[in-house]
Write a protein that binds this DNA or RNA. Structure first.
Lengths: 247, 247
DNA sequence: CGGGGGTTTGACGAACGTCAATCGGGGTGG
DNA sequence: CCACCCCGATTGACGTTCGTCAAACCCCCG
């Protein structure tokens, strides 16, 4: 909660609609339910890149929905080494755990400027009736979060730098496509190679060289921070990639 | 569900009591509640080492509580490389996710002979009143599970073999102590170094050499499969170990 | 006494990290 | 508009950690 910036009025509507879609997640909502959601999504906040959205050890009782930008869950060792556990993408929730006394196992940090909205609803919905569509969406968020962590463990534990990078790129592609952020097979990865390295458990130098190899082999293309995966099938084979359950 | 073996009648009572304690987790239960739990813990099943308690992709709608023995969540790459995500210890639940259509992101495999009990209660309790002690215990299980995964990512991504091993040993020590399985500062690790390696993302040879180094430095002692940590404070410093929130 | 699985050892190679220098592009003050 | 600057990307040389292969060893058990 360090600072907040202005949002263009036109964006507010678009972001709210995006939030409504993220929370219905394929399940049909009545007009009335949608309207209630839009109201709940009122307090949009924009925070600059680098701001800490959540602190390690903080009580997880301030549920938020990320509407725009990238964030990361991470932990920093006492000697400064950083590991990113997982990325928080538009449509993802964070800052809650259905446990009253739950504590965050790491920081949540904004990698770009982000727009978030506090949403106590996320936690409340967990206890609704099993048929409630919002409840289902929130559970899917939690299940996806765990599944992504499992992927991350698999990558870090048993895959080579090359495989790891491909696997993570495929994961980005799949998650971003699910929220409409892949255009023409290309998506934005709006952060430095150091961030990528801290997610992959590699040095920046090695990450750089691995990226170059993928470019040389015409498996990916990059333009600035935009990435295009050129052969999804082959890439998936290289990384032994499996679609995340719940995506 | 490949096979079941006999349990000594005397053990049944002990294991049920253990289950009741695990599910109350410090919260006080009335006599009546305890009795209900004991009834719910009726169908004890013993399975041999190596049996698959859950299959990757299987619907997570068969909650179980592990009462005795060790199990592991793992995934195997198509070329045979195995990565263990996390260990399931006595008192831990598995096989449920709160999401109706949740699927397991990996296998659950018995590392030793195990005693488990099917317990639909685990999933049902998630939706109880926030003050319900069983509900709190189950949420703590889920939170712990995620926290352990975060630890695992940290280890694999940013720690050396030496640090990783120490960190994992400390985690075992802490978790086992919480369920009364550390005696005299010593606990059992009833599996091969290959299992340990597949958890640490190392080769068995390197795991072996790292263990030897810790023994040479008088930081640990082993007798058969029993391990004793000789200087918890120093070990915690080496591995930058932090107590898991919720333990 | 003989197997067999697990542990230990040694020799060697590959993957990845570190250090340090250079490059390149976009922003900015003059 | 241009020179400058700064951060991030890239490159090269070299060191370390860890993996691989294969053999030896150990211990428990039949």
């Amino acid at each position: 909660m360090t600072s907040r910036q202005r949002l263009q009025q036109a964006d507010v509507g678009r972001l709210r609609d995006f939030g409504v879609r993220a929370l219905s997640h394929g399940h049909a909502l009545s007009e009335e339910e949608q309207q209630q959601l839009r109201v709940a999504l009122s307090d949009l906040q924009t925070q600059p890149a680098g701001s800490e959205l959540f602190t390690e050890g903080e009580r997880l009782n301030r549920p938020c929905l990320l509407l725009e930008g990238w964030a990361a869950r991470q932990r920093v060792l006492s000697d400064g080494r950083r590991q990113i556990f997982s990325f928080v993408l538009p449509g993802d929730g964070f800052g809650f755990s259905g446990r009253p006394a739950g504590m965050s196992p790491g920081n949540v940090v904004a990698l770009t400027a982000v727009t978030v909205v506090p949403l106590p609803l996320l936690e409340e919905a967990l206890y609704r009736d099993a048929a409630d569509p919002i409840r289902q969406s929130v559970w899917e968020m939690l299940a996806l979060r765990e599944s992504l962590l499992a992927n991350q463990v698999m990558r870090l534990g048993r895959q080579s730098a090359y495989e790891r990078l491909v696997h993570l790129l495929l994961e980005f592609h799949e998650r971003l496509a699910a929220v409409g952020l892949v255009q023409d097979g290309s998506f934005e990865m709006p952060f430095t190679q150091e961030v990528l390295s801290d997610a992959l458990g590699l040095s920046t130098v090695h990450t750089n060289r691995t990226l170059q190899q993928l470019r040389r082999e015409h498996l990916i293309e990059t333009h600035g921070t935009a990435v295009r995966l050129l052969d999804l099938k082959l890439l998936a084979e290289i990384a032994d990639y499996r679609r995340a359950p719940g995506l």
